[in-house]
Amino acid sequence: MKFYKPTSLPDLFRIVNDIEGKKYYLAGGTDINVQIKKDMIKDEPVIFINHLNELRGIFEVEDKIIIGCLTSFKDLLESILIKKHLPYLQKSLNAFASPLLQAMASLGGNLANGSPTADLTPPLLVLDAKLKILSRSKMRIIPLAEFYRGYKQFNLKHNELIGAIIISKQAEAGYDCFHRKIGSRKALTIAKIGLAGLKKAENGIIKDIKLAAGSLNEYPRRLIKLEEYLVGKSIDSLNFTDIEEILQKEITPISDLRSDKEYRWQVTVNLLETFLKN
């Protein structure tokens, strides 16, 4: 296993540019070391980035919160800025693993690992989070929703890195916010279902709604068709036959070691009902 420890951010991109094939960035190590143990990573080069502090931190820039990719879940949980502007996001973080992992796991790593069950991706999706993607000479910004292309398939070139996550300070303002993770126990559990939603209603009519699901597709994603259907509907007279028909096109629950598809389907419908009716 070839190992690199870049001396700076420019040095990192010089190293990255020279490696054409598959490679791994090592930040907190909480996912990569499990994959090494399971022989999912064998001889691919590993580039250590955890010491590059310019990729760490939570900043307020005009109307946005910028979160460096190396920022840990613990940093986010303890951040006064996040508490002030994005309390819903902060509360969602409690669903993640345990304090022992929250201390090491980075937000960028969690997104780049691309697990279908990633706990924070559904809340970030409904908050319309964007990714600042860096390479040696370029920077581009894309919506998080456009980052995933399939199971562990990303909109990311071989010489690129997620540099930061960008969220509008107003992303939660005025919304009823919802996030539920269904697992087998409270701490240290991998989600059977994750559902996040933001809703704005006026006089019982849904004016704006954002929904995202985890553990129900090859990657966490927004439920766009359902959102389009729900806008303008009266909360008291929602037609759940229609809702289930659209939901069926949006999610593909599977049976695996954690749960079965019938359970996943029914609980998702129940969660959706809870969120929509309250």
Binding site: G29, N33, L100
Partner: peptide, 21 residues
């Protein structure tokens, strides 16, 4: 795999699982 806590140490003033560091 970082799930049981048997290998917990204080690292950089935070408790972490040393098996995945």
């Amino acid at each position: 795999e970082g799930e049981c806590g048997l290998c917990t140490v204080i690292y950089d003033n935070k408790p972490v699982t040393s098996c995945i560091l």
